[in-house]
């Protein structure tokens, strides 16, 4: 903004202030604003009523560098694989337009594991949710776009878990925002570095701010238990030729979260023959054919695709064979 325009804006502001005395900017008057003060006097002397103006004193408002950052996640974000998104909001609390450098640090004291930072992205479409391919990923050394005073920007940090974490492990990722003009102890002056050539002065935030986003490892594991029940042709349970063996496979999903592509397979033991049409999943019959339902069976073995398995749930597959 040029000085001339600032003067014009100031004159307008005075008029607006009269109508709305609470219109003061939350973060203070804009950098580059001119504060001009003139007093005028009227008096009576021997020559009659007189008017006189003082000289005008002018002070230019410098740019105050300040920033705030806050996590936007309601609690710890579950992490089980890549593409886990932590959401932050960076606000320019200074009084001039400013861009900010962002640094994500996965190594926070007290972490059970340190996540891998895959990318830092800005919420380009402003919907508060990370949209891959739409929201711009900041390249190495890139800063945020310039934020106006009071403007807030939603920032996403995309992370993946390291190998070997266990369910329930916690971690934090620190995101630091620094004014690109400079940071330092409050009061540090960067001469001429502010908006329209005014000085930039570090504000009470030290022109940097950081906060932690939390991760909670949410890993599901699967336990598989196999059992067999034998029914011989004589009403007993002897493993004799002609006896029917019912195998039961129970897959239990443990931990938290879900597992995907859960598949239960088994081979038909040598010396036995699969009893056609006996395959079930959770007591519901499945056809032997390789078709729309989840299972298929043949002389070689059985194959049941459960799909998504939820922690705490059991998935039971049964099938019969006859001893040759």
């Amino acid at each position: 903004m040029t000085n001339a325009r600032t003067k014009l804006a100031l004159a307008t502001t005075t008029a607006i202030l009269f109508a709305m005395p609470h219109a003061a900017h939350a973060t203070g008057v804009t950098a580059g604003t001119l504060i001009e003060n003139t007093a005028s006097a009227t008096y009576e002397s021997g020559a009659g009523p007189q008017t006189v103006d003082s000289n005008t004193v002018t002070v230019t408002v410098d740019e105050l560098l300040d920033v705030a950052i806050a996590t936007q996640d309601a609690g710890a974000v579950p992490i089980s694989g890549s593409g886990t998104v932590l959401t932050f909001e960076v606000t320019n609390t200074g009084n001039g337009p400013e861009a900010f450098d962002l640094t994500a640090d996965p190594a926070v004291t007290g972490n059970d594991f340190d996540a891998t930072i895959d990318a830092i992205a800005i919420d380009t479409n402003g919907n508060g949710t990370y949209d891959p391919g739409v929201d711009t990923i900041l390249g190495a050394g890139d800063s945020t776009p310039v934020l106006d005073p009071d403007e807030a920007l939603t920032v996403f940090v995309i992370v993946s878990p390291p190998a070997g974490i266990t369910d329930g492990d916690t971690s934090q990722v620190n995101l630091l925002a620094e004014a690109t003009t400079g940071t330092g102890t409050p009061g540090t002056v960067f001469t001429g570095a502010g908006e329209s050539g005014v000085d930039a002065v570090v504000g009470s935030s030290s022109a940097d701010a950081d906060t932690n986003g939390s991760l909670l490892a949410s890993l599901a594991t699967v336990a598989l238990v196999k059992s067999a029940v034998i029914a011989d042709p004589f009403g007993g349970s002897e493993a004799v030729p002609g006896a029917v063996v019912t195998y039961t496979l129970v897959a239990t999903v443990q931990g938290s979260g879900t597992v995907s592509n859960l598949r239960i397979t088994d081979v038909i033991p040598t010396g036995t023959t699969y009893s056609a049409g006996t395959l079930t999943l959770d007591a519901a019959g499945l056809s032997d054919a390789d078709d729309a339902d989840a299972g298929k069976a043949s002389a070689a073995g059985i194959d049941v695709l459960v799909g998504t398995g939820t922690a705490g749930a059991d998935y039971t597959v049964t099938f019969d064979v006859t001893i040759d």
Binding site: L10, T13, T14, L17, A24, V29, T33, L34, I35, E36, N37, T38, A39, S40, A41, T42, Y43, E44, S45, G46, V61
Partner: peptide, 19 residues
Amino acid sequence: STQPVDNFVVTNPLPGAVM
């Protein structure tokens, strides 16, 4: 001046950027 001045009233509008 050499004469007294009466009813001396100084008015100062506050600049909009200060309170």
